[in-house]
Design a protein around this nucleic acid. Structure first.
Lengths: 232, 232
DNA sequence: TGAAAAAGATGACTTTTATCATATTTTTGA
DNA sequence: TCAAAAATATGATAAAAGTCATCTTTTTCA
């Protein structure tokens, strides 16, 4: 897949840098990253990497939104998490020296920098703070996926959709508008699109959200929280 | 919770050591571990630690079986994983400097060594191999829980039970006999006990397993695999 | 910009799985 | 060891969510 690279932004000028892993880099490391990285623009639906491929490097999301997905039973797709501006993805396969166990696909047009494997390895070998930050990220990811696992197992769809909306609204663009396919939303909470659509209609009827075309705006976070909490 | 300590086994004599994280310790580190650790016997149902408590150290399972559980919706319990001989547990909270996000409960009488927090911290700070091994364990745990998440979301109960039986049979005692409450099995695959019981009856009828009291013996792994794979 | 494709919405129906009730067997511990 | 408690087993029923069909709206891109 040939991708056109966009004009590189220097990491230190990138508005997502203080959220990103690379904030732990020294000045000289940053310089090296700036030199070696590739900046790529992905359109909605395009893949940064595919399950089963060899890892190329670490991706830093400088803007946009990327879904991390896994093939599931019956050709269905499970969205493991959704990464946004400032998040780094793809480093786990790098650490494990293994093929990607998930795919990463842009859910909206996104700007992403790819830090090549060697660069990543060099930094993690020399920069302890960076290495420890990764360790913490891994720990958080474990916690998140365990929580999600328990939720999918025992919380009814209504509660899961409510929770997902809260989470997505928080990480969404300034105005908290969620722009995600119903199908993606379904993969994210572990159902099918029809069920999500129905649940969203309910929420709309209860004035918890507002729907404009594909976009969902949360009107009443507390309300959603209590829906979600009903099943805790 | 006062627990009687059993006679300490020297780590180097422990039959689980070559599976355990502490195989990466140097001779002098091992000496220190031997000196500082506490060896505890837990009876079935007893907790090594509880969700919400501050971490005491890292637990090494020298024999037995421990379920890692999380409170889920409706007072239900989700078993995140089941750890056996040679597995280490509880290190993640140590790394994150946070309270336990799960509880650990013995599913059979177990012998466990507790390596105190300070000891753990000391080793991870000085022994790079040890530290990296933990990193890899974290990565594996992420992968496992993501797989499990996708499975619970989209694979029907029958397939999940089949898969669980395969996994449990592999990690079980020599003869591959699974000794787990139906309720625990249910928490493990994310259902209720009645459904598990029914599924097990089916499998018994199909000569895939044999049931003797609580114990389940897998007769036909390939058969179970194809049941599980049916839904991939 | 306008036709084709994709996504959203909704109803009818089915399937899966949970719940409840109850009886039996197994395990536990005084 | 034996009575009480816990776990297993099974049927009947209910509820939740999935599937399928169809129609409308929105988006895409030639």
């Amino acid at each position: 897949m040939k991708k056109s690279t966009h004009t590189a932004i220097l990491c230190e000028k990138c508005k997502s840098v203080n959220k990103s892993l690379i904030r732990f880099c020294s000045v000289s490391e940053l310089e090296s990253v700036n030199y070696s990285k590739t900046c790529i623009t992905y359109k909605r639906g395009e893949a940064l990497f595919q399950e089963g491929a060899m890892p190329l490097g670490m991706f830093c999301i400088s803007s946009g939104s990327i879904k991390i997905v896994k093939e599931a039973s019956g050709g269905k797709e499970q969205i493991i998490r959704i990464a946004g501006t400032g998040d780094s993805i793809g480093y786990r396969s790098l650490i494990m020296h293994q093929r990607y166990s998930t795919s990463a696909i842009a859910t909206e047009d996104s700007k992403v920098c790819l830090i090549p494997r060697e660069e990543f390895t060099k930094i993690s070998a020399n920069n302890n703070q960076f290495y420890e930050a990764i360790m913490l990220l891994l720990c958080e990811e474990i916690e998140n996926s365990q929580n999600k696992m328990a939720e999918i197992a025992y919380k009814p769809v209504r509660g899961r959709v409510a929770e997902a909306l809260i989470l997505l609204a928080q990480m969404a663009n300034p105005q908290g508008i969620i722009n995600l396919t119903r199908e993606d939303l379904a993969s994210f909470v572990g159902t099918v699109k029809e069920t999500v659509i129905r649940t969203l209609s309910e929420f709309k009827g209860e004035h918890l959200i507002e729907i404009d075309k594909r976009c969902i705006k949360v009107l009443n976070i507390n309300g959603l929280e209590s829906v979600s909490g009903l099943y805790d």
